[in-house]
Nucleic acid binder design. Structure first.
Length: 173
DNA sequence: CCCTGATTCGC
DNA sequence: GCGAATCAGG
């Protein structure tokens, strides 16, 4: 995957919004979080709060021989054919809503979400992502429905969105 | 163990 | 320039 102007643009945007490298990587698709971080550095826009202390590294020389890892699956981060722009409401609820009359739309920023299967409630099974798309009161409402595995009610992507903010908050950056 | 960003360095 | 491996830390 090469860094097209578009992708770089998205990267900058999301990074500026404060998304984590892995989230950005997930949304761009085809790249690892390391790639994102590396790119961010090269773009010299890494200045986003000192997360870690002044590291002084000078260990390991290079890639050592991994001891035949039996099932060390290298996950290419699943298939993400297309990315669809949807006005997600995921994290908004946590931002206080001023009593001020704000009837118009709040851009917040488009959040790119992976393909959803748009399932109805009755179609959900124990392994389908139960992440809601849209307003539950709306006709348009649906569930993500992608494979959720057994680690939770959401697919890998939505698990991040659902749980990560909490841990992020916990660290109180 | 999960995650975060930072750095190094072979490619 | 790119990004995996690695580190250091929450």
């Amino acid at each position: 995957m090469n860094w097209t102007d578009e992708r770089v643009e998205t990267l900058k945007k999301l990074w500026a919004e404060g998304l984590s490298a892995s989230q950005i990587a997930a949304q761009l698709g085809g790249v690892s979080r390391n790639a994102v971080i590396g790119k961010v550095h090269r773009l010299k826009l890494s200045s986003r709060g000192r997360a870690t202390s002044p590291r002084t590294r000078q260990k390991k020389a290079a890639t050592a021989a991994p001891t035949t890892t039996t099932t060390t699956t290298r996950r290419p981060r699943a298939t993400r054919p297309t990315t669809v722009s949807i006005g997600a409401t995921a994290l908004q609820a946590q931002f206080d809503q001023e009593p001020v009359a704000q009837t118009y739309i709040r851009p917040v920023s488009d959040v790119v979400v992976p393909i959803s299967r748009k399932l109805e409630l009755v179609q959900l099974t124990e392994t389908t992502c139960k992440w809601p798309n849209g307003d539950p009161l709306s006709e348009e409402f649906s569930f993500c429905g992608n494979e959720a595995g057994e680690s939770g009610p959401y697919c890998a992507y939505h698990s991040r969105i659902a749980y990560q903010p909490a841990s992020e908050r916990r660290r109180a950056r």
